[in-house]
């Protein structure tokens, strides 16, 4: 409760004491938006942590070895993530649903366990130190990026591209028969999502003094967490993933009393939200909560029918 009280009574102190949390929410929102693009076009891709790793390692390695400016490092990470996105997308985008999800899991784990943990330049399992990180100063950049990303998402989902993606998501065959180049639009979504994830990865690396190749960071655990942001928040509206990232990231602060049992609270929360609102927090039906089958029905007063 203290969390909310401080947020409303003393926003300045809240900002100062929770800067890192706010930055993490911003980063998570950007990554969730990257997941949103693929989900919005009907593809269950879990590749985001792989592209984040590419963005993060590229940018930190350039900084370590060539001392190039941050903007250039981020740009290089984004370009590389995009290129790898094309190379990975070409073979895997024929796959659908769970198969695509598993193939992209194969990609991120092959990248993490096979490449990152075996190359001397990436520090193998030990990770990389990033002495020029700027945890507190980076927050403005994160918030500005988030605003730009949200604006782009808004325009994308309102435009031709978004309409094509929505059509493909709802019925691929129907979209094809309407003359939509399904393969091309899927590829655009996949590569855009890779680019965004690469950017978020680079940005996140800039906020931490250490690049950690662990499962929580660039592995399946992270992929599932990002999927949770997007699905819980609602994958039909561009604001959904941001709301999801905000809610899930702040849970440990909101339920401070739970202490060590926070994961149990999170689990119960995930199940409760998805059962009561399968479409996500932001989505069809305004704020109505769907009544699960086992919930007691309200006694209905039957009025005599006219006539």
């Amino acid at each position: 409760m203290d969390f909310f009280i401080q947020l409303f009574t003393d926003p300045v102190a809240f900002w100062n004491s929770h800067t890192l949390l706010i930055a993490q929410i911003g980063i998570n929102s950007i990554i969730a938006s990257s997941m949103f693009i693929v989900l919005y076009s009907g593809q269950l891709s879990l590749a985001a942590p792989g592209f984040m790793a590419i963005g993060a390692y590229t940018s930190v390695l350039m900084d370590l070895h060539w001392h190039t400016p941050l903007a250039l490092n981020l740009a290089a990470g984004v370009v590389l993530a995009g290129v790898v996105g094309v190379l990975v997308g070409l073979p895997v985008l024929r796959l659908r649903g769970v198969f695509l999800a598993i193939a992209t899991i194969g990609f991120i784990e092959a990248l993490r366990l096979g490449v990152i943990l075996n190359l001397p330049i990436t520090g193998e399992g030990l990770g990389l130190k990033n002495p020029t990180a700027d945890p507190l100063g980076g927050i403005n950049m994160v918030l500005v990026s988030l605003a730009v990303v949200l604006f782009i998402m808004w325009r994308l989902t309102k435009g031709r591209l978004g309409a094509a993606w929505a059509a493909i998501r709802q019925d691929e065959l129907a979209a094809l028969s309407q003359g939509i180049d399904v393969a091309r639009y899927k590829m655009i979504a996949f590569v855009l999502s890779a680019i965004l994830a690469g950017f978020a990865g680079g940005l996140e690396a800039h906020l931490n003094f250490f690049v950690d190749p662990g499962d929580q960071q660039y592995g399946v655990t992270r992929a599932v967490q990002i999927l949770t942001f997007a699905v819980l928040g609602g994958s039909g509206h561009f604001l959904g993933p941001v709301v999801g990232a905000l809610v899930v990231t702040t849970l440990p602060w909101v339920f401070q009393q739970a202490h060590d049992y926070i994961n149990i609270v999170t689990g119960v929360f995930l199940i409760a939200v998805i059962v009561f609102r399968p479409q996500g927090i932001v989505g069809r039906g305004g704020l109505a909560i769907v009544r699960p089958a086992w919930w007691p029905r309200r006694a209905r007063v039957s009025a005599p029918s006219p006539g």
Binding site: L39, V231, T266, G267, V268
Partner: peptide
């Protein structure tokens, strides 16, 4: 979720939630 005819992706999230609870 089945009763609500939710998309299969919803079941991914709810089972992840339960996994979190069991492990925790």
């Amino acid at each position: 979720l089945r009763r609500r005819r939710a998309p299969p992706i919803a079941a991914l999230i709810s089972t992840v939630g339960l996994a979190l609870i069991i492990v925790a």
